[in-house]
Amino acid sequence: MDFTFSDDQLAFQDSVRSFLTNEVTPEVIRELWQRDGGRSDELWTRLAGMGLTALTVPEGFGGLGLDELDFVLLAQECGYAALPEPLVETVMVAVPLLAALDDSHYQLQEHWLSRVASGEARLAVGHPCNPLVADAHVADLLLLCHGDEIHAVPATRATLSAGESVDPSRRLFRVDWTPSPETLVASGETGRRLQADTLNRGALACAAQQLGLANRMVDIAVDYSFERKQFGSAVGAFQAVKHHMANVAVKAEFTRAVLYCAAYDVARGLSSATVAVSHAKIAATEAALLAAKNGIQVHGAMGYTWEVDLHIFMKRAWALDNAWGSRGVHKARVGDFVFADGAPLGTGATFG
């Protein structure tokens, strides 16, 4: 069996990495913090021009018709760059949710998905696991949960109240709205299934970004350790500093297979997706949080300061820790799987 990504997937990852490295620099991120809304229409248009907003939109609605496995490498790169724009949640969470509605909502799907694919519209998703809705202020359509129902709510029918985040790039809002038959798009068993699938995709999106963040913080700390000199030598030459970063690199490397397995399970709709996603969210978050902790130590007292770029990525990792389910939530889901009667555990069940 071949578990590697295709040449096309890797080439697309390289092109996205190159674009984000050049266009989404720490200086650009800091500048966006000062803008009202914290978002850039110009940057969103350029992302759409690369086909990124259309990636998971079905071909019938003007998209590329790809899935979570195709996008997971790109989500990593968005994490590596700490991209402020809501691209990952749009492509990995909002679009699949809207596309999964039944045929009775074809006109709604056609109207919104085609506009998302072209970059003309943005979506935001509210879920019971997230008290506040990310990027609701730039969304043209909000997909919101109410009990076992899902509603498609135009932005004009919702009232927003800004919340706070440790990460200045994350814009969070409480959404006040009134459920109505006109906005209802799913309920009952269908609504519960779509909400569960949405939680899995949201957690997968966080995990992919956390892995990218962990890698970026390692790179920042390593670069600093060779620039900073002490006792006439670069601090990176000291064994204790090397161990700090090596520990993070090991955690990040072991996260890759777990993350890609989860993306495969979600993309194929497998029953193992829930536990695989929770495993990936835990592993990736622990790698990112260790990268933040050890990165601060490598920087010394400078690690906490506003002037050092490390805090941009560190704060994003802290913010994503509790997004789409805390580590406690996901550990409980893994525990339910492991301790269930007849759980398919061990090497014999791995490739069953």
Results as ranks from 00 to 15, higher is better:
Gly303Val: 05
Val266Ala: 07
Thr21Gly: 14
Glu77Asp: 00
Val185Met: 02
Lys251Gln: 13
Tyr304Met: 04
Glu189Gln: 15
Asp341Pro: 06
Ser326Leu: 15
Gly188Trp: 06
Glu85Asp: 04
Gln13Lys: 15
Ala240His: 00
Ala134His: 11
Asn247Val: 01
Pro154Cys: 08
Met92Cys: 03
Ala139Pro: 15
Glu59His: 06
Ile296Phe: 03
Val222His: 13
Tyr80Cys: 02
His151Lys: 09
Tyr304Gln: 00
Thr21Pro: 09
Ala121Asp: 05
Ser165Lys: 02
Pro128Ile: 10
Val24Ala: 03
Ser278Glu: 06
Leu66Pro: 01
Glu85Pro: 00
Leu64Trp: 04
Arg17Cys: 09
Leu10Trp: 01
Val88Met: 05
Ala273Leu: 05
Met302Trp: 09
Leu144Asn: 13
Ala196Tyr: 03
Trp177Cys: 02
Ile220Gln: 05
Trp177Thr: 02
Ala267Asp: 11
Leu66Ile: 00
Gly325Pro: 14
Phe61Ser: 15
Glu59Ala: 11
Leu310Tyr: 03
Cys261Asn: 15
Ala158Arg: 09
Ser114His: 08
Asp219Lys: 07
Leu55Val: 04
Lys242Arg: 14
Cys129Ile: 15
Asn200Cys: 15
Met314Ser: 13
Thr183Arg: 03
Ala208Glu: 14
His330Thr: 08
Val133Met: 14
Asn215Val: 10
Ala196Leu: 11
Gly342Arg: 06
Asp103Ile: 03
Thr274Ala: 05
Gln297Tyr: 10
Gly51Tyr: 00
Thr21Glu: 12
Ala155Pro: 06
Val125Ser: 04
Phe173Tyr: 15
His243Met: 12
Ser118Val: 07
Val185Pro: 05
Arg170Met: 06
Pro179Lys: 10
Trp324Pro: 12
Glu77Gly: 02
Trp112Leu: 00
Ala234Tyr: 01
Gln239Ala: 08
His311Cys: 03
Asp70Ala: 08
Val91Phe: 04
Ile312Pro: 05
Val338Pro: 06
Cys206Arg: 14
Met217Thr: 08
Ala214His: 07
His299Ser: 01
Leu289Trp: 05
Leu52Glu: 01
Leu289Gln: 10
Val241Lys: 08
Ala283Glu: 13
Glu77His: 00
Asp223Thr: 13
Leu47Glu: 07
Phe61Pro: 10
Pro128Trp: 10
Arg170Leu: 06
Phe226Gln: 07
Gln109Ser: 04
Glu85Leu: 02
Leu172Pro: 00
Ala340Ile: 04
Ala263Leu: 07
Ala246Tyr: 10
Lys293Ser: 12
Ser169Gly: 06
Asp7Asn: 12
Phe238Pro: 00
Gly147Thr: 15
Gly119Val: 04
Thr198Val: 09
His244Gly: 14
Thr56Val: 02
Asp336Ile: 01
Tyr264Ser: 12
Trp306Glu: 12
Gly300Glu: 01
Pro84Asp: 04
Gln230Ala: 02
Phe231Leu: 07
Ala196Gly: 10
Gln107Leu: 11
